[in-house]
Write a protein that binds this DNA or RNA. Structure first.
Lengths: 144, 144
DNA sequence: CAATAATGTAAGAGTCGTCTTACTTTGTCA
DNA sequence: TGACAAAGTAAGACGACTCTTACATTATTG
């Protein structure tokens, strides 16, 4: 089981996100997205490559290996859950929610994430004026 | 304005917490609490001392300066809010909530923390079966 | 197709945060 | 009160992560 640092998770997530909207991922793009210098992004990519998550030919583009893609996807999913909690439950502005999610997303347990997901579902259903609100969350939780 | 790293925030919080139940704080206690070696804790204390947050005489105990106490208190308060959210809203077991709070507590904005606080109040009031639930949170939010 | 722009790489330095090993000081108690 | 235990310190190492400066390769375009 690969154990990444928080920073490397950030880089992998960034690469994953870029790769979804662009068919090539360059070091420069990563650097810009993470607001670091190009050499810094490069060393990060080198670390990820050492772990087999990405590969890159000399002067070539960054390519996600299957394991890297999978992990990037997972990290991004966590990010989305947190962001959704911030926007939908706390009513935080999208832009701030995006930042804050970055800060909270590392190293959370599967348990907490699963419960956060359930909680969000409960909240969302509640939006239509349904008064059962959180009690439904509690029931679901007890059912697992 | 002092800008601590996440780790140093952890150390300061630890020192603050120990100081609340014990009238002297030693490097060894800090090391044990943070699960690091004694020299590691020592270098962390040295960093905090450099920032004027704590002081320590040679071979002496660690003492929180006023600024350190204030900041430690603030950091701990954030920790408590997150822990409460995890236990009271998500119904996470206390022990896990304690850990997870540690991971989420760094670098959150005042806005997010304030809203989380309000949200918790709304949830708590909702516990008695009051159907207004989250709508009260939304109202309060708009009123600020 | 050659000059230039864009992109990527190398080398070297510095801080943070951790460790190990070894040493010093302080406190205790026989 | 002196030996030993407990606590603290020093020195040196290492990886992560960042920077700057300088160099190499690739793409573009005039």
């Amino acid at each position: 089981m690969i154990r990444l640092t928080a920073k490397d998770e950030d880089y992998l997530e960034t690469i994953y996100r870029i790769s979804k909207t662009s068919d090539t991922v360059g070091v420069t793009e990563v650097a810009k997205a993470r607001k670091v210098t190009v050499p810094t992004a490069r060393t990060a990519v080198a670390r990820l490559a050492k772990d087999g998550l990405v590969r890159q030919q000399h002067y070539g583009k960054i390519i996600l290996n299957p394991s890297g893609k999978k992990l990037g996807e997972e990290i991004f999913a966590v990010h989305r859950i947190l962001r959704q909690f911030l926007t939908d439950a706390l009513l935080i502005e999208p832009q701030l929610a995006e930042q804050e999610a970055c800060r909270m997303e590392h190293g959370l347990s599967k348990t907490t994430l699963r419960r956060l997901r359930l909680f969000l579902e409960a909240i969302t259903n509640c939006g239509g004026g349904d008064p059962k609100c959180l009690s439904s969350y509690r029931k679901e939780l007890l059912a697992k």
